[in-house]
Design a protein around this nucleic acid. Structure first.
Length: 824
RNA sequence: GCGGACGUGGCGGAACUGGCAGACGCACCGGCUUUAGGAGCCGGCGCCGAAAGGCGUGGGGGUUCGAAUCCCCCCGUCCGCACCA
């Protein structure tokens, strides 16, 4: 063994040790208090990139720290191994996705080990394991049985590049696919959905109690988009403008029922089922032309076009009756009214809605204000608070009161009712691709749609497939897969060829980790009860909506079905979102080709230096530029610790005399302060300052070691040992190696040190003396100094007297023992 | 447009509850080691000023004995969401 710091040799050795010894394996009957640390399920794209390193370094630090604190820490790992990249690669190279995926999992696993991240590898799962597929399908079928899955025709987002449909969440604001970047178009297709909207209210309410970044909670609230309003009918008007009683009224939804008296027209979505019925013959041609011009456009395109409103809507020729005023008002179609929100029809109130205002001007409709704007208001539509006007029985009421009164009136008249709507829509889970979890349903000519019996799971993917350059799923033409028997009648049937969105796989993996050996259920409720919810979940903010919302839905649904413990309402108690790594000002990503490979750094400076650099460079939750990383500085620091701590080294304590000096007391206090400080910083994710703490303490030790009147050997030894303990979660290899050489045994299994509170305060402190808030002197005083003595000491200062100019201070503020402020 | 985060030396950042602004690191400068250093150790390092001292946390105002921190207005950067009825 060399006495020089040689990360390569020690890191490989300890990585092997942790694996061989099973140091971080934890059983479900472990007597220690359970603590579940989880980093987000990675997609295995090959060796780890810097983003992985950052994520898994944070997680690993916590795993090791909590273990030293005495917890039985569950630290599992698995791989989100289904998905398009592997299938696209298969299309290009002809290699089956399973082969690439397995190789990538191996590569990523090796990377994680190389950065020193430790897991209970016995619990590893991958989405494409038949044993995992089985339970993903089992959950689907249980949801199916419970009515949480349905198949329905719906306008969907079709990505021509991916040859599949996408969930709304997977379409970017500019209307392109988040994966391929292709422009998504809109078509009607028969698809599978998870009924996530059943849980909309609970998903919203339960956010309040989660210890998550406020930013993520706000994003989720917005995505769920609860709104309160009223739904009511607009009677269809006859030629005289009178309400017809022989035709169903047109249902509209509004959040502003208080402005009903200002409704001067109404607007229908172009795909509304009643367009044909209501359009008058003279308008039919124009309406049809408008409808077909809108038909091909994606929802996002329709909602984000800024074009002038006269082109974006047409009159139907029909009129409806405003039930508030009894007047007949025109009915239009407009592209921005969507069939998928509310009732697909709106009442338009130009006085209180700018878009309606603009539309009214473009189409010659009346404008009536029903909320009194303030005197200085010079805008057009007024959306603020104010008393109702021109509104009969609502006049004078504020917005909230007027809303309530309007709803009460609608209900009393039998016209409508108060309602709550959500922006959240059901989760479209089917994908027309091969490399995903097959949807376990068959279609029988006689019995129709039939779920696959639970005992027949898993429905696995056939391996003998050919990938077409078109991207069309090979399942659609694979006779062996397609042909099956009906579980109901035993006759011939065809399998569903759609597979599941990969977000399904990541919606329950954290539960499987609790008991991956379970063979009678996806996990045992007891194990889930023990470990869940995850005490600390760690990942990227890019999953703020999709993954986290879906996982929350699954957890709630599984609990309600009795699969998960009934009290388990949320999967992740605490969430930490770490920042991303940029290079040259842009996000590092494979597609941008600006990746910095961790391997070179691991080869040269080692895993501990890379980990430390990630921790030190910035607060963990912030984005960071790769240019700002100080790997060399961290490597240099680690070598400094090595020289200080390695037995027989140039600076180690055994070279010193055994004579105790005053320095012993000082260094002992410093050591206790270090423990208190690092413990606090670890607890609040202040890893960058923790690294500063290691460095400061090391600098202090260096000065003492080289001082003539420094501490004696045992005191210094104890200080160095403590440094190794508190650094062990951050730089595990170096600390394990030095600890073993100095003390024997394993630093990661010793108890976390505890600071003696008495040693955290000195007998004296430096008291600041200010004159008019400016620091003028510093005086060393006893910690228990009283106010009068402190004031006297401040006034006695010669430096201070120079600023008082002989006059007594007008006012004296004393904050013992730290500060005296003299005001003149 | 709406929502959020943020703005501190040459650079990344620190200052947790209103009380020493600039910890720690990088870069730079100097010294030591008989000095081969891209090694090691020690020291310096906000700006102006010879000094005393003054000025300093994006800009402007305010609260306070005291503000990087709290309040108001403005400017700028980044990130979400975006014609949702």
């Amino acid at each position: 063994m060399s006495d020089l710091y040689d990360p390569q040799s020690i890191e490989a050795r300890w990585q092997q040790y942790w694996r061989d010894e099973g140091t971080y394996e934890v059983d479900n009957d472990d007597p220690r208090p359970p603590f579940y640390v989880l980093s987000m399920y990675p997609y295995p794209s090959g060796p780890a990139h810097m983003g992985h390193v950052r994520n898994y370094t944070m997680g690993d630090l916590l795993v090791r720290y909590r273990t030293m604190r005495g917890d039985g820490v569950l630290s599992p790992i698995g791989f989100d191994s289904f998905g398009l990249p592997a299938e696209n690669a298969a299309i290009q190279t002809g290699t089956h996705p399973r082969i690439n995926t397995d190789a990538n999992i191996e590569a990523l696993s090796a990377s994680l080990r190389r950065i020193g991240a430790v897991y209970d590898w016995r619990r590893m799962v991958s989405s494409h394991d038949p044993g995992y597929i089985r339970w993903t399908q089992w959950i689907f079928l249980r949801f199916y049985e419970a009515g949480l899955v349905y198949r329905g025709e719906a306008p969907v987002n079709w990505c021509p590049g991916c040859q599949t449909v996408l969930a709304n969440e997977q379409v970017l604001p500019d209307g392109t696919c988040e994966r391929s970047g292709d422009l998504v178009d809109r078509r009607n297709m028969e698809q599978w959905f998870y009924r996530i909207t059943t849980y909309a209210q609970e998903l919203l309410d339960d956010l309040d109690d989660l210890d998550w970044p406020e930013k993520v909670k706000i994003m989720q609230r917005h995505w769920i988009g609860r709104s309160e309003g009223a739904e009511f009918g607009l009677p269809i008007a006859d030629a005289d403008g009178m309400a017809r009683t022989d035709v169903e009224p047109l249902g509209v939804y509004t959040t502003r029922p208080d402005t009903g008296f200002g409704m001067t027209f109404a607007v229908l979505s172009p795909e509304h089922p009643r367009v044909d019925e209501l359009t008058t013959d003279d308008r039919r041609g124009v309406v049809e032309a408008f409808r077909s011009s809108v038909a091909g456009r994606s929802e996002i395109d329709r909602l984000s076009t800024g074009g002038s409103l006269d082109k974006r809507g047409v009159a139907t020729g029909a009129r409806v009756v405003n039930p508030f005023t009894g007047e007949a008002i025109p009915l239009f179609l407009a592209d921005y009214v969507l069939m998928t929100y509310g009732t697909g029809a709106i009442m338009a109130v130009p006085g209180q809605d700018q878009r309606d205002w603009d539309f009214a001007l473009a189409h010659g409709c009346d404008i009536v204000r029903t909320v009194q704007p303030p005197p200085d208001f010079d805008g057009e539509a007024y959306v603020g608070e104010g008393p109702a006007i021109n509104s009969a029985f609502l006049d004078g009421l504020g917005v909230a009161d007027a809303k309530a009164a309007a709803i009460a009136w609608l209900e009393a008249e039998g016209l409508g009712r108060g309602t709550v709507k959500y922006r959240l829509r059901d989760w479209l889970l089917s994908r027309q691709r091969y490399w995903g979890c097959p949807i376990p349903v068959v279609y029988c000519d006689d019995c129709g749609e039939q779920p696959v019996p639970l005992d027949d799971l898993p429905v696995d993917l056939p391996n003998d497939v050919e990938f077409m350059p078109t991207g069309r799923s090979p399942l659609m033409t694979h006779e062996g897969f397609l042909n099956t028997t009906c579980p109901n009648c035993g006759g011939g049937a065809r399998r569903e060829t759609d597979t599941m969105d990969t977000f399904v796989d990541s919606s329950w993996y954290f539960l499987r980790f609790a008991d991956p050996w379970s063979d009678g259920a996806p996990f045992t409720a007891g194990a889930a009860d023990r470990w869940l919810p995850v005490d600390q979940y760690i990942g990227g903010v890019e999953h703020a909506i999709l993954h986290l919302m879906y996982a929350r839905f699954f957890t709630k649904a599984l609990a309600d079905l009795g699969v998960a413990p009934p009290g388990l309402r949320e999967p992740f108690r605490r969430l930490f979102t770490q920042g991303m790594i940029r290079l040259g000002g842009t996000k590092m990503s494979k597609s941008k080709g600006n990746l910095v490979a961790p391997e070179e750094i691991l080869d040269r400076q080692g895993a501990d230096a890379l980990r430390l650099a990630h921790l030190q460079v910035k607060p963990p939750q912030e984005d960071v530029d790769w240019e700002d990383f100080g790997i060399d500085g961290c490597a240099k620091f680690l070598a400094r610790v090595w020289r200080l701590a390695v037995p027989g080294g140039p600076l180690t304590a055994d070279a010193r005399t055994g004579v105790s000096t005053d320095a012993d007391e000082v260094i002992d206090r410093e050591t206790h302060r270090l423990v208190a400080r690092i413990t606090d910083e670890y607890d609040r994710w202040s890893y960058n300052t923790a690294v500063a703490g290691f460095m400061e303490f090391t600098n202090t030790l260096y000065r003492w070691v080289q001082a003539d009147d420094g501490p004696h050997g045992p005191t210094l030894d104890s200080a160095v040992d403590t440094l190794l303990m508190v650094m062990a979660p951050a730089a595990p290899h170096l600390c394990a190696e030095l600890w073993e050489r100095r003390r024997g045994g394993h630093v990661h299994t010793v108890a976390w040190p505890v600071a003696d509170p008495d040693k955290l305060v000195d007998d004296t402190v430096t008291m600041i003396v200010q004159v008019n808030g400016r620091v003028r002197d510093r005086i060393e005083v006893p910690v228990d100094i009283d106010a009068a003595t402190a004031e006297a000491a401040a006034l006695a200062s010669v430096r201070v007297q120079g600023f008082l100019a002989g006059d007594p201070p007008r006012k004296v503020i004393v904050r013992t023992p730290g500060l005296v402020n003299l005001v003149v």
